[in-house]
């Protein structure tokens, strides 16, 4: 589903964010991306969404080489991906419903279809009663769940999360990780960047570890490793 082939990224500032990264995630797989801050996790995710393009190598998503997409195809490519951020990236001048509906509006879905999907997504994250509220009036955990609802409302094939639990307490973090696993169970390919090694280790999933832009570990955790 996602394949990195000898990918390097050097920013215009001369900073090498990623060097010679190669790995592959299968359809329906769930994996964690770990490493210290500055190790290149966010850059790797931004390469998958094509918000950045690699300096060298190829990123292939759903059989398409992202280097060869036209501007319009890039937009269409992003419609099959959902992204969750640590800082949520919500629009504070719109209510919860409008925030979650944005991926559907961009794709031109009908109003009734949009309403149905948005309600279903908000129901999934337990915020059905708060669709008319502004994100600013919600707690951090609720804002994060609005962000998740927006990331999954259009039923993406791929779900990416960049430090989704960075600002949340352990209990909330576990809930959020549980949500991601539920999406994975219905066939969504999930990649979560997190430096919360304890939580990552408890989940018995593949772990990809970056250090200073290099891939230093890519291992499957055995299923019999108990939750921590």
């Amino acid at each position: 589903m996602i394949r990195f082939d000898q990918v390097s990224k050097r920013y215009a500032s001369g900073n090498d964010a990623l060097s010679q990264i190669s790995f592959e995630l299968q359809q329906g797989e769930m994996a964690f991306l770990t490493g210290r801050s500055g190790a290149g996790k966010s850059t790797l995710l931004r390469l998958i969404t094509r918000m950045e393009s690699p300096s060298q190598g190829q990123v292939i998503v759903a059989g398409r080489n992202l280097n060869r997409l036209t501007r319009r195809q890039v937009a269409w490519h992003r419609r099959q991906i959902g992204v969750v951020f640590q800082d949520h990236q919500l629009l504070f001048d719109r209510d919860v419903f409008e925030n979650v509906a944005l991926p559907l509006k961009v794709s031109g879905y009908s109003k009734s279809h949009t309403e149905r999907r948005v309600r279903a997504a908000l129901d999934k994250v337990g915020l059905l009663g708060k669709e008319k509220m502004r994100p600013g009036a919600l707690s951090g955990g609720e804002q994060q769940r609005v962000g998740i609802a927006r990331a999954v409302v259009h039923r993406p094939a791929i779900l990416l999360a960049d430090e989704p639990t960075g600002n949340l307490d352990p209990l909330l973090s576990r809930d959020i990780f549980g949500l991601f696993e539920e999406f994975n169970q219905v066939g969504v390919c999930v990649l979560i960047a997190s430096h919360d090694l304890g939580l990552v280790a408890s989940r018995r999933r593949r772990i990809i570890t970056l250090e200073q832009g290099r891939l230093i570990e890519n291992r499957e955790q055995r299923a019999d490793v108990g939750p921590g």
């Binding site: 937009a75 992003r78 990236q89 991926p103």
Partner: peptide
Amino acid sequence: EVVRLVGGTAGY
């Protein structure tokens, strides 16, 4: 930025 990320075209 958010609209770009969720797949908004230049026209949108």
